[in-house]
Design a protein around this nucleic acid. Structure first.
Lengths: 149, 149
DNA sequence: GTAATTGCAAAGCTTTTGCAATTTA
DNA sequence: TAAATTGCAAAAGCTTTGCAATTAC
């Protein structure tokens, strides 16, 4: 259940000697509730209803803290604010630059390309911090329709 | 020579019924001089010495105009400001998120991956508007050194 | 002369930061 | 109580915009 997830994250923080505050608990709870790809602002808004005093700066600082301790990460999906996740980045993100949709696909889908590129250029793509940007299938189909019309 | 390049770009604008102004000429000249991957702010600074009245907003507006008419494009290289180029995006950008270095590699280096991904997921990566972010060979080597130490 | 363009100042959006007041352990 | 955390307001970084004044055609 969700409470377990929150508790385990807070325990991790505690284990590292980091203080558990009311605000930190609330931010983590909100992230568990939000599930996927939430922005700092969305978290702020979620929390603002019940906790008008929890300031956005605290949300940002808590997210940074969670990231520094390896309990969360953020991805940049093209334009717009960063999106946050609990846990480890375990898949790569495909972000549609037209409709904003985000697909998560298996990391190893790109493994061959990545090693090819590494061999050819010495460059190692990091697919976790920045999404691959492009067009999702729906938007591609729509664009082709528009071209015909 | 550089003057030709500028003249040809301005001619393209004229052909589309767009007015050629002093400022627009100056911005295009600065881009020709700058060559690669220049930011709007860098262009502003270049121009500010000889033309203190040319406002940054005009640089942004001119860049947008050039992009709308297909004479320039911009790429996002991870964090930081967009970088601008005259011409068409004809290669893909590898941006090191550690040192900021940008490599340009041949488009077709990713062709197989892109079509694989398209076939598997329906998603079409756009490598022109957003760079692929990661680590360049130099930074990779340095990181490995640091790990050993 | 008229429509497009510019300078300027302001604001927009996302995020960070300095500092005094509060809270945690 | 000492040290960490928070609220607040402000600023930072990049870019866009409204409007009145200027300029190109």
């Amino acid at each position: 259940m969700a409470g377990d997830r929150t508790a385990s994250i807070l325990q991790h923080l505690k284990d590292r000697g980091i203080r558990i505050t009311v605000d930190r608990r609330l931010v983590v709870e909100a992230m568990v509730r939000a599930g996927d790809h939430v922005t700092a602002e969305e978290l702020s808004e979620m929390l603002h209803l019940a906790h008008p005093d929890l300031h956005a700066a605290t949300v940002y600082r808590t997210l940074e803290l969670l990231e520094d301790t390896g309990l969360a990460y953020h991805v940049h999906l093209g334009h717009g604010p960063a999106r946050w996740h609990l846990g480890d980045p375990s898949h790569l993100h495909l972000a549609c630059e037209r409709c904003g949709e985000v697909e998560e696909v298996d990391d190893n889908l790109l493994e061959t390309v990545k090693s090819q590129l590494l061999a050819a250029t010495g460059f190692k793509i990091d697919t976790h911090h920045f999404a691959l940007v492009g067009r999702c299938s729906r938007c591609l189909a729509q664009e082709q329709l528009n071209q015909v019309t």
